[in-house]
């Protein structure tokens, strides 16, 4: 079967890895953190891909790493793929720095403004053009991290 991302692999070399997503017939493109916005921009602009719609941006903390997954699709070509990158989880009070996808898909801002305070992530390079602020309270740490003691924090 033809690999629809052979051009991508040829262009980005070892900075990307393509594999299957779970049991589904989607592909996952795993990009290094330094090049993930570049890969996103390529998928957005490349005529054979035209990935124009970001469905969701999710963060998972697994085995000491933050895994960011952008579920993206093309309304033009009909294809869909998961773009992924990962980085080590920093110290309990430190923020992880991850390049923002807002420049590629402006709609990423809806997800980034939510994930940033909950996971302690600084999305760098975001223009922050939207007018919706999200405030979830003040915590000693970041509520969605695995090391966050939510029972202690809530006083139960």
């Amino acid at each position: 079967m033809r690999n629809p991302f052979s051009e991508l692999e040829a262009r980005f070399g070892e900075a990307v890895q393509v594999r299957n997503f779970g049991r589904s017939n989607r592909y996952v493109i795993e990009a290094t953190l330094t090049r993930w916005v570049e890969v996103a921009a390529w998928l957005r602009m490349e005529e054979s891909q035209r990935i124009d719609f970001l469905e969701a941006l999710t963060v998972t903390e697994l085995k000491g790493r933050f895994i960011l997954s952008a579920f993206i699709r093309s309304h033009v070509q009909g294809g869909e793929v998961v773009l992924r990158t990962s980085l080590p989880v920093p110290g309990a009070t430190e923020r992880a720095e991850i390049p923002s996808l807002v420049g590629v898909w402006p709609h990423a801002e809806a997800f980034e403004t939510e994930l940033a305070p909950l996971f302690g992530i600084q999305f760098t390079g975001s223009r922050g053009v939207g007018g919706v602020r999200k405030f979830f309270g003040t915590y000693d740490g970041f509520p969605l991290r695995k090391n966050f003691d939510w029972l202690e924090e809530s006083g139960l």
Binding site: R133, F135, F136, G137, P143
Partner: peptide
């Protein structure tokens, strides 16, 4: 116009 949300946050995912 500016919006602020978060007043109903339930921490469901956690």
């Amino acid at each position: 116009a500016r919006l602020q949300t978060g007043f109903l946050h339930k921490g469901l995912e956690k």
